[in-house]
């Protein structure tokens, strides 16, 4: 069965879709009451975020748009040193979407939410004309666990795992390439929680998404220079192979389950241990250091002893070389 405009009419069909699909998947007291809003327990300091998800294809190796929409918002909260608590989700469905696909997405969302310890407390659905597409917006509320310490030269830059996996997986399915690459889409809140509990002086956190590591480091640098080492950057051989063929640079490729943590230099070893023993952090490494501001916000030390300015992503594939 496919989604039709009737599913968005607000009448019987809509009601059936919500009851039989969404409520069944996300069941919890706050949602099940189906009021105009969810009434929930509060916390002293809140973190709030929202994100919209548009991805082709809807299902890809290692994940789907549903898992992505939960992880994305959970991670945004975690990057604010907050424990994710509640989620809302808005669906925009295009006419012609397979009901079955929607069901799978919803189930995946529910499963991911349970894993991430968040409750989906409110939702909304709209149907538009189109070609069977699906877009999701999620908003999240979290409880702030700790505060950031000010960044200083000598701080360590840690990366929780390999670069480029999500980007490469999406590309592979779009290009119909058979390989073993899977998206790394995953919730990162446990890692963050452990850092906080371990007493690590955290200076900055950021999940490595759009624009890739190079772009987010530029955003994090502030008045400092972040120096990272080429040789230290983890990239899986499969991702390396694919990106080489197409001239992609893993430094600019998106992940959905990796983060950069800048921590006090004295806490670096302990923080690495905590990351490595957390789910999704087994391959965590130190990739560089914070230094006083030099010529550029981000500098990449190459194997041959050169240093290269690492700028932000300025346009997909825009060449510079003459």
């Amino acid at each position: 069965m496919k989604i039709t405009l009737a599913h968005g009419s607000g009448g019987e069909t809509t009601r059936a879709l919500i009851d039989q699909l969404f409520v069944r998947q996300f069941t919890n007291p706050a949602l099940d009451s189906l009021g105009d809003c969810a009434r929930v327990q509060g916390f002293k300091r809140l973190a709030v975020t929202t994100d919209s998800f548009v991805v082709t294809p809807l299902f890809f190796p290692g994940g789907d748009i549903g898992k992505l929409s939960v992880c994305g918002t959970v991670n945004d909260l975690a990057m604010g040193l907050a424990a994710p608590r509640y989620l809302t989700c808005g669906f925009i469905l295009e006419e012609g979407l397979e009901l079955d696909a929607l069901e799978r997405v919803a189930a995946s969302m529910a499963k991911t939410a349970r894993k991430a310890g968040v409750v989906v407390v409110a939702g909304d659905t709209k149907v538009v004309e189109g070609r069977g597409g699906l877009y999701i917006n999620t908003a999240g509320v979290g409880e702030i666990l700790a505060d950031f310490c000010p960044m200083a030269p000598g701080d360590a830059i840690l990366l929780s795992g390999t670069l480029g996996d999500h980007h490469a997986a999406i590309l592979s399915s779009r290009l119909n390439v058979q390989n073993a690459i899977e998206s790394d889409c995953a919730p990162l809140h446990v890692m963050v929680q452990r850092l906080v509990e371990g007493g690590i002086r955290v200076k900055a956190l950021r999940d490595v998404t759009r624009g890739g590591l190079a772009t987010i480091l530029n955003e994090l640098a502030g008045t400092h220079t972040l120096r990272i080492e080429d040789a230290a950057l983890p990239v899986s051989p499969e991702v390396c192979g694919l990106s080489g063929l197409l001239g992609l640079d893993p430094l600019y490729m998106a992940n959905e389950g990796k983060m950069v943590a800048i921590v006090d230099g004295r806490d670096a070893d302990k923080a690495l241990d905590l990351l490595r023993t957390s789910p999704y952090g087994e391959r965590a490494v130190q990739i560089g250091r914070v230094t006083v501001r030099n010529e550029a916000p981000v500098v990449l030390q190459t194997a041959l002893g050169g240093s290269r300015v690492l700028g932000v992503l300025y346009g997909e594939g825009l060449p510079r070389i003459c």
Binding site: L246, L248, E316
Partner: peptide, 23 residues
Amino acid sequence: PREELVQRALEGGIKTVLSSSAG
């Protein structure tokens, strides 16, 4: 196979630019 992959990337607009480069 590599040319095949590049052609698909071109069709999908992946890492692709429009260019009149003589080089």
